[in-house]
């Protein structure tokens, strides 16, 4: 027996076929957090790619800002069922950051200021599928949304788009991240509704 609260709809709006199964549209931008919001001064910010051969590629904020930028407009889908269409970001494609990186690794572990981690196959970060962004909707990315810079991997559930990103470690073996070790799906494809472990 289920109890219906008469007239309750929640804050959702109607769906279209741009929505993966089970998702609802939102107009606002919900903030989900697993800890305090890190404050990272730009003069101490850095982004690093560490390869399986212990090679490290680093960018200071200045170096990062000097890289060619793109302004992708993408749909984002959160595992907690909200989706937001046509969000516009500005940042650097991971293809640019990986240009000089030599690796045979298959897996990536993304890590953040504040200790958050998330894992995904390296190929999901390449070929125009992912960006490190520092602007949202024409404005500087706010700390609560992941500023100074966050990862955006829009084809996977949004927990893979790590806020406050600090680096990517390349690995020969998969290493499940923060939510992936606590019940969430290891890959997280919204179109196949891979929310939880076993979905």
């Amino acid at each position: 027996m289920s109890i219906i609260s008469r007239g309750f709809r929640g804050k959702r709006r109607d769906a279209g076929d741009r929505l993966p199964p089970g998702q609802y549209l939102v107009e606002d931008f919900p903030v989900l957090s697993a800890g305090p919001t890190p404050r990272v001064p730009l003069d101490r910010w850095e982004f690093a790619i560490d390869t399986e051969a212990e090679q490290t590629h680093r960018w200071s904020w200045e170096e990062f800002m000097a890289l060619p930028a793109e302004t992708p407009t993408v749909d984002i889908h959160c595992v907690t069922k909200w989706s937001k269409l046509d969000t516009t970001w500005e940042g650097v494609s991971l293809d640019v950051l990986f240009e000089d990186v030599e690796t045979a690794a298959e897996y990536a572990l993304v890590y953040s200021y504040g200790g958050y981690t998330t894992n995904l196959p390296l190929e999901d970060l390449l070929d125009g599928k992912a960006w490190i962004v520092h602007r949202f909707d024409g404005e500087e990315l706010e700390p609560r949304h992941g500023g100074p810079a966050r990862l955006i991997v829009p084809h996977l559930y949004f927990w893979k788009s790590a806020k406050w990103v600090r680096g990517i470690r390349l690995l020969n073996d998969d290493w499940p991240g923060f939510w992936e070790t606590a019940g969430y799906h290891n890959y997280g494809d919204p179109w196949r509704e891979q929310r939880y472990e076993g979905d």
Binding site: S33, A34, G35, P36, C78, T80, W179, A182, G183, Y196
Partner: peptide, 25 residues
Amino acid sequence: YGPDPGLVARCPGCEEVVLRLVRGP
């Protein structure tokens, strides 16, 4: 912190994660 995507409880002394709870169907 949470409740979504999961509840994360941190130590008031050092802010490390002490407990995590995710509820799925």
